[in-house]
Simulated scan of single mutants.
Amino acid sequence: MEFCPKCKSMMFPIEGSLKCKKCGYVKEKEEAPELVSKATREEREVTVLEGNIDEGLPTTKVKCPECDNTTAYWWLRQLRSADESETRFFKCTKCGYTWREYD
């Protein structure tokens, strides 16, 4: 994150440069740091649970789509940007099937 040297507002990347939306100051390409693009969902690998670490997780009443058991462990993971809600995951206490809740 970089701030405008004139008005101290946050600067935004626009076409390889940084621009202040408040006063219009532009930091040219040769001055601007290398901008990093966000990874797409396909490029990210999400680890849900490894091994047998589900002990101690809270449980809830929810129907397993694989075995129809009605109890599952649950946990939350932040998969998208911080301003979007977390994703809730479930793991069946009987068969171990793992799935996520979609809003």
Rank of each mutant, 00 (worst) to 15 (best):
M1T: 04
F3M: 05
K6C: 04
C7N: 09
K8F: 07
S9M: 12
M10S: 04
F12A: 02
F12W: 09
I14T: 07
S17G: 02
L18H: 06
L18R: 03
K19C: 05
K21Y: 13
K21P: 01
K22E: 12
K22S: 05
C23N: 02
G24S: 02
Y25K: 12
V26I: 15
V26H: 02
E28P: 15
P33N: 06
E34M: 03
E34C: 00
L35W: 03
L35T: 01
S37L: 11
K38I: 12
A39H: 07
R44K: 13
E45D: 07
T47V: 13
T47Y: 04
G56N: 07
L57V: 07
L57T: 08
P58R: 08
V62I: 15
P65M: 07
N69Q: 12
N69A: 14
T70V: 14
T70F: 03
T70Q: 13
A72G: 09
A72I: 06
Y73W: 13
W74Y: 15
W74S: 10
L76H: 11
L76F: 12
R77E: 13
L79S: 07
L79Q: 13
R80V: 05
S81P: 00
S81F: 11
S81H: 08
S81E: 14
A82E: 14
A82Y: 11
D83A: 08
D83P: 00
E86L: 02
C92M: 09
C95F: 10
G96T: 08
G96R: 09
E101L: 11
D103R: 08
D103Y: 12
D103C: 00
